[in-house]
Design a binder for these strands. Sequence first.
DNA 1: TAAGTATGTTAAG
DNA 2: TTAACCTACTTAC
Length: 270
Amino acid sequence: MPEGHTLHRLALDLTGTFGGKSVRSSSPQGRFTAAALLDGRELTEATAHGKHLFVAFDGTEQQVHVHLGLYGAFSFVEQADPPVVGQVRWRLASDSVTADLRGPTACELLTPDEVEAIRARLGADPLDPEADVERAARAVAASRAPIATLLMDQRIIAGVGNVYRAEVLFRHRIDPKVPGRDLRPSTFLALWSDLVDLMGEGVRIGRIDTVRPEHEPDAMGRPPRVDDHGGEVYVYRRDGQPCHVCGTRVRTEVLGGRNLFWCPRCQRRR
DNA sequence: TAAGTATGTTAAG
DNA sequence: TTAACCTACTTAC
């Protein structure tokens, strides 16, 4: 379930599990041939920028670059040598833990220049305290594209995916189709600030929860509500169902090749 | 068994 | 703008 929070959490998990240890590295599926070059090396650190993961090893400048794509995932098991199930592109293992990577769009060993080239084309990451928010704000203010498209443009904001964009726009009652240039700068900064909070929470709890306490069903004596993807949300994939705030049916439409979800009543142009 | 779906990106047209 | 790609799981037949 890979939006930016997933990758940052993964970086923490990989560093926590394997950091400072020599690891075994292999590609059971065979498609990551460079895996063998890392076998026996010490994993120094894993880091994330947006939806990209980088894994560094002792004694080489090269890093493994992983992009999970739509359905790539790591799975951790506390076993030294579990049987391989399915298509395992990359297996990392210590004496006691094995991490298997399946279905990534990218899993490759890159030179420092190649790593830098990827980082250079990524925009501000809400999960990076050093992120250049002003640069992102300028790009948004200069664009005629809908804010819903801009939020997912990784060159502007790195790490936001389809769930966070729908949810953060709902939380701020913004019409997804408002052009970036028509958005007040203070509104964009409020969106950004909310993304910092929401995605930080996503890293901590490992899923996307965006519903404010006052809209929690628990507060009204109803059972907790968790959507298919495992989090609690206002509009994402809730098309046809009543808005949690006003009861209007949530709408969906394909925008820029992705499914957009919004409440036509709560999110009106103002 | 087959088809459809998914929190993404890239390259071709 | 569309298709292609990587995988696992759910739903339809």
